[in-house]
Amino acid sequence: MDDADDKHSPTPHPAGFPADETHRLTAEELAFLLRDPMLRARAAERAARSNRLRTERRASDPAYAEKLRAGDRERQQRRRRRNAIGRPEPAERPATTLPDLTLPQAARLLSEYLAGSTTAQAAQLRGRPDRVRLYAEAFVTYRTLSAGDVRPSCGALAALLKSRFGHTVTRSQAQKLRDHVEGFAITEGPWSPDPAASDVRPRSGPGNPASKRDKGKAGSKDKAGTDGHAPRPSRP
């Protein structure tokens, strides 16, 4: 009888070892803990040297720095996609309502707005007519793409700016331009759709040269600057 009970009794674990199998170290963990301290020190030294060389090259090689930034953005996008699995899709933000203005009209209203502003950013922008024109072109591009009341994507803005006006902008620059357009369209802004501001806008007509369609193309192919000058739009 005692022999039968002994056969079914659990095997005792040695002292100092947990009974739960899940707490046992894997072979890789044991190998890491039992490594020679000198090997671990050399591995840490190699990692530090690699990081130092990468930092130095990033500072001296713009193309390499952009490659690293692109890799970081891609990893962040993958992480966001993984985190978004199972979550409901966020509601799309509607497009900002913009007035019916031609490119010269938008540029003129923006110039007048900046002339009356006392901020340092406005003073800097007043001396950059090329930047004013870029924002006006972004205004026209935004309004064209938002015809269906859908907020234009950064990629669509960048593509149309390049094909229509010859400007090459990155995705982040296109995002800043979109924010500027929406910021200038707030109440009392130069591109506000408020009817009260219509008295300062030029009327279309045969005698008004601003009513003619602007056919000039921007000659510069450089990447557009997108420093912040517009007031921030109110968040929904």
Rank of each mutant, 00 (worst) to 15 (best):
residue 18 P to Q: 12
residue 18 P to K: 09
residue 20 D to W: 07
residue 21 E to L: 07
residue 22 T to V: 09
residue 22 T to G: 09
residue 23 H to P: 02
residue 23 H to Q: 15
residue 25 L to E: 13
residue 28 E to V: 06
residue 28 E to N: 03
residue 28 E to P: 00
residue 29 E to D: 11
residue 29 E to Y: 00
residue 30 L to F: 12
residue 30 L to R: 15
residue 31 A to H: 08
residue 31 A to W: 05
residue 32 F to Q: 13
residue 32 F to G: 03
residue 32 F to R: 15
residue 34 L to C: 11
residue 34 L to P: 00
residue 35 R to K: 05
residue 36 D to Y: 05
residue 36 D to I: 07
residue 37 P to R: 08
residue 37 P to T: 09
residue 39 L to W: 05
residue 40 R to D: 08
residue 40 R to F: 00
residue 43 A to Q: 13
residue 43 A to M: 10
residue 44 A to Y: 02
residue 44 A to P: 01
residue 45 E to W: 02
residue 45 E to N: 01
residue 48 A to D: 07
residue 48 A to P: 01
residue 48 A to Y: 03
residue 52 R to E: 15
residue 55 T to F: 11
residue 57 R to M: 10
residue 58 R to P: 09
residue 59 A to Q: 05
residue 60 S to A: 14
residue 61 D to T: 10
residue 61 D to R: 05
residue 62 P to V: 06
residue 63 A to H: 06
residue 64 Y to S: 12
residue 66 E to R: 15
residue 66 E to Y: 05
residue 67 K to I: 04
residue 67 K to Y: 12
residue 68 L to A: 06
residue 70 A to Q: 15
residue 73 R to Q: 07
residue 73 R to A: 13
residue 78 R to C: 05
residue 78 R to S: 06
residue 79 R to P: 00
residue 79 R to A: 11
residue 80 R to C: 09
residue 80 R to V: 06
residue 81 R to N: 09
residue 81 R to V: 02
residue 81 R to G: 02
residue 82 R to P: 00
residue 82 R to D: 10
residue 83 N to Q: 15
residue 84 A to Y: 07
residue 84 A to L: 08
residue 85 I to W: 06
residue 87 R to L: 15
residue 88 P to S: 10
residue 89 E to W: 00
residue 90 P to E: 02
residue 90 P to I: 02
residue 91 A to N: 02
residue 92 E to L: 13
residue 92 E to P: 13
residue 92 E to F: 04
residue 93 R to V: 14
residue 93 R to M: 13
residue 93 R to E: 15
residue 94 P to F: 09
residue 94 P to V: 10
residue 94 P to C: 11
residue 95 A to C: 14
residue 96 T to L: 07
residue 96 T to F: 10
residue 97 T to I: 13
residue 101 L to D: 11
residue 101 L to N: 12
residue 103 L to H: 01
residue 103 L to G: 02
residue 104 P to I: 03
residue 105 Q to L: 02
residue 105 Q to R: 08
residue 106 A to S: 08
residue 106 A to T: 04
residue 108 R to D: 14
residue 108 R to H: 11
residue 109 L to C: 10
residue 111 S to G: 12
residue 113 Y to V: 03
residue 115 A to Q: 11
residue 115 A to K: 14
residue 115 A to M: 10
residue 115 A to S: 11
residue 116 G to L: 02
residue 117 S to N: 14
residue 117 S to Q: 11
residue 117 S to A: 13
residue 121 Q to F: 10
residue 122 A to S: 09
residue 122 A to L: 04
residue 123 A to V: 14
residue 124 Q to R: 14
residue 127 G to C: 04
residue 127 G to D: 07
residue 130 D to M: 06
residue 131 R to V: 06
residue 134 L to P: 03
residue 134 L to D: 08
residue 135 Y to F: 12
residue 136 A to H: 01
residue 136 A to V: 02
residue 138 A to Q: 01
residue 138 A to K: 03
residue 139 F to R: 03
residue 139 F to Q: 03
residue 140 V to M: 09
residue 140 V to W: 00
residue 141 T to W: 02
residue 143 R to F: 07
residue 143 R to H: 11
residue 144 T to D: 14
residue 144 T to V: 13
residue 145 L to W: 01
residue 145 L to G: 00
residue 146 S to M: 04
residue 147 A to N: 00
residue 147 A to S: 06
residue 148 G to N: 13
residue 153 S to D: 05
residue 153 S to A: 07
residue 154 C to S: 13
residue 156 A to L: 08
residue 156 A to V: 04
residue 158 A to E: 00
residue 159 A to Q: 08
residue 159 A to W: 02
residue 159 A to L: 09
residue 160 L to A: 01
residue 160 L to I: 01
residue 160 L to S: 00
